[in-house]
Amino acid sequence: MATNGTLTSTDYIKHHLDPLQIGEGFWAINLDSLGISILLGIFFIWIFSSVAKKATTGVPGKLQTFIEMVFGFVDTTVKDSFHAKSKLIAPLALTIFVWVVLMNTMKLIPVDFLPVIAGTLGMWFAADKAGGFVAENSTFVERAMDHPWSYIKAAPTTDLNTTVALALGVFILIIYYSVKHKGLGGFIKELTLSPFNHWLLIPFNLVLELVGLIAKPLSLSLRLFGNMYAGELIFILIAMIGLWQLPLHFPWAVFHILIILLQAFIFMMLSIVYLSMASEKHE
């Protein structure tokens, strides 16, 4: 996509960073991240439940071994960090880990791949919606990229909405577990009377503790989003430099495999740790 006359570099980057959206303002929906993440979630549930259904206690097949490996990894991590008893935490951690890994992995699809396909489909099925910004003699790819459907982005985790949604779920659970294990009074006491146990310092404590509390989901979501968004930006920049993108894209993609797994693991690990902290009793 580096060789076109009508599209500037800025346009190109903007095109790739804008989501495929319908609606306006807050009521807009990012079809790409929502659709792809739901598809990936369904894929995760489907493959894990089908393996779980057919799983044997005898010698497992290769797929079952792989699934059990992931399961065992998450199970060990949860058991190491979360000491209270809960039926929710382990499945939650597994869902976060696998889902985030799958969503991050979408980034390994080259940045122009899905947009061109979606744009082509758009030209076939919804030709009247074409942007109309390209010249008559422009290439096929340019025309495809002109169609609004080509705004599709492969990785849902490069959308802040996805990561905030995940962090929000964890945040609600943090509050739920805090109240459940410490009681409402205990939770409020923790917010108001620590670190300085004096009634005069309640406002000060409240500010400190609330910042600490809010920082948890904020850091969770922004860390994942920032990593993925920045990586995506580098992919887009690499994609812009023409033929030289081939030797560059490969090492960056290989490096990104590490980030994909690492970020998913960090998200899962921190969720477990936060929930474990929430369900700890101080007395």
């Binding site: 009521w27 849902p156 909405n161």
Partner: peptide, 11 residues
Amino acid sequence: NLTLIGQSIAF
């Protein structure tokens, strides 16, 4: 935007 709600429900 609204995607947040959708993603939360999906999650």
